[in-house]
Amino acid sequence: MKRTLVLAAVLAAALPFTASAHKAWLLPSQTTMAGNAPWITVDAAVSNDLFYFNHVPIRLESLQITAPDGSRVQPSNGATGKFRSVFDVELKQQGTYRIASVNDGLFATYEQNGERKRWRGSEATLGELPKDAKNVQLSQSVGRVETFVTNGAPNATALAPTNRGIELVALSHPNDQFAGETARFRLLVDGQPAAGLDVEIVRGATRYRNAQDELKVSSDAKGEFSVAWGEPGMYWLETSSEDDRTSVKQAAKRRLSYVATLEVLPQ
């Protein structure tokens, strides 16, 4: 089971480079509410349809939940099944929570005894590669899949960039998106504005329409792009890139991916 979950997490991190039909996502039961320590439930999965769990789960070991004051929160009642993981979060604080699955790993191909093989792991487990491995090609993968939930009045503390990999800065609050309005976002790579990134945005419930109806835009010189929201609903936003700015000297390249789930509310 543990091996299956690890492979699922690696798949989620590498999706933009492997199979565009498979989409990783976190889906909260609510994104905005007001109350004294309310609860939400979050589904975490990789699927063919948005937002239906019909492929593999995202592992819970990679979760990072940031509270409105910037502290870390542990999920409750976590469980992983065949097609999805699920967990609860108690929103004890007023403000905005950032809920993310963050993966930072290594992938290698190599030859051993005349056969081409693959390995996945981390910098800490790099020593697991066979001593007699030849023609080793090592790459780094940094991926973030996230969503945002606000209890009461929104704030921005949890939204501060970590300056690692691709991150999204909502120039209007991520829980303040409305149909018929145009929102503006900024993309960062390692904390710096990222120009020329291609972004795909898809409204959920793709199972019930013949076309994905995806919107494709690119970030400008400031790393910014605009989205004119159509119908209300839950939206999936994805981008990816590749560079040679690895933090592991043995890795020749770095693959970056980012996914966010945003709710667009009716006017």
Score class of each variant (00 low, 15 high):
residue 104 D to S: 11
residue 222 K to T: 12
residue 115 E to G: 00
residue 60 L to A: 14
residue 168 L to Q: 01
residue 235 Y to C: 00
residue 199 V to S: 09
residue 98 R to M: 02
residue 74 Q to Y: 05
residue 79 A to R: 13
residue 191 G to K: 13
residue 264 V to H: 01
residue 192 Q to R: 15
residue 11 L to Y: 02
residue 196 G to W: 09
residue 48 N to I: 12
residue 172 S to A: 06
residue 51 F to Q: 09
residue 89 V to I: 13
residue 159 L to Y: 04
residue 124 A to I: 09
residue 8 A to D: 03
residue 167 E to V: 01
residue 13 A to R: 15
residue 226 S to C: 05
residue 138 L to R: 03
residue 164 R to E: 06
residue 157 T to D: 09
residue 164 R to P: 04
residue 264 V to F: 02
residue 248 V to S: 08
residue 194 A to N: 09
residue 7 L to Y: 02
residue 31 T to N: 12
residue 221 A to T: 11
residue 256 L to F: 07
residue 182 T to G: 12
residue 126 L to T: 05
residue 12 A to H: 14
residue 106 L to W: 00
residue 110 Y to M: 06
residue 45 A to M: 08
residue 75 P to C: 04
residue 243 D to I: 04
residue 236 W to T: 10
residue 181 E to N: 06
residue 5 L to W: 14
residue 244 D to N: 10
residue 50 L to Y: 13
residue 259 V to W: 07
residue 29 S to T: 02
residue 68 P to H: 08
residue 217 V to K: 08
residue 251 A to M: 05
residue 203 R to Y: 07
residue 40 I to V: 15
residue 156 A to M: 04
residue 51 F to V: 08
residue 158 A to P: 09
residue 195 A to M: 09
residue 176 D to Y: 00
residue 150 T to M: 05
residue 197 L to V: 10
residue 94 Q to P: 02
residue 246 T to D: 06
residue 163 N to E: 11
residue 147 T to I: 07
residue 260 A to M: 00
residue 99 I to H: 04
residue 5 L to R: 14
residue 176 D to V: 00
residue 128 E to F: 12
residue 257 S to D: 09
residue 10 V to A: 13
residue 245 R to G: 01
residue 218 S to F: 06
residue 38 P to W: 06
residue 252 A to D: 10
residue 107 F to G: 15
residue 122 S to V: 09
residue 83 F to C: 04
residue 29 S to V: 04
residue 239 T to C: 15
residue 36 N to P: 04
residue 57 P to L: 02
residue 165 G to W: 00
residue 20 S to G: 11
residue 201 I to S: 11
residue 17 F to S: 03
residue 236 W to H: 13
residue 134 K to F: 05
residue 5 L to D: 15
residue 177 Q to W: 04
residue 52 Y to D: 02
residue 10 V to Q: 10
residue 234 M to D: 15
residue 51 F to E: 11
residue 13 A to F: 07
residue 252 A to M: 08
residue 210 N to L: 13
residue 237 L to N: 00
residue 157 T to H: 07
residue 241 S to K: 07
residue 93 Q to L: 08
residue 26 L to C: 11
residue 260 A to E: 00
residue 76 S to M: 13
residue 93 Q to E: 13
residue 142 V to Y: 08
residue 230 G to E: 10
residue 16 P to T: 08
residue 254 R to E: 11
residue 119 W to N: 02
residue 20 S to V: 13
residue 114 G to V: 10
residue 105 G to V: 04
residue 192 Q to P: 09
residue 46 V to K: 11
residue 82 K to R: 12
residue 128 E to K: 15
residue 205 A to Q: 14
residue 253 K to E: 14
residue 172 S to I: 08
residue 197 L to D: 06
residue 149 V to F: 07
residue 50 L to E: 10
residue 91 L to H: 00
residue 254 R to D: 12
residue 233 G to T: 01
residue 234 M to R: 10
residue 110 Y to S: 05
residue 246 T to C: 01
residue 204 G to F: 09
residue 149 V to E: 07
residue 19 A to Q: 09
residue 59 R to P: 14
residue 61 E to H: 12
residue 113 N to I: 05
residue 111 E to Y: 06
residue 158 A to G: 03
residue 13 A to K: 14
residue 243 D to C: 05
residue 56 V to T: 00
residue 38 P to Q: 03
residue 174 P to Y: 07
residue 132 D to Y: 03
residue 242 E to A: 11
residue 47 S to Q: 00
residue 212 Q to G: 02
residue 215 L to D: 06
residue 168 L to Y: 01
residue 30 Q to H: 03
residue 185 F to V: 14
residue 76 S to H: 11
residue 110 Y to W: 10
residue 160 A to S: 07
residue 97 Y to R: 05
residue 181 E to C: 12
residue 153 A to W: 03
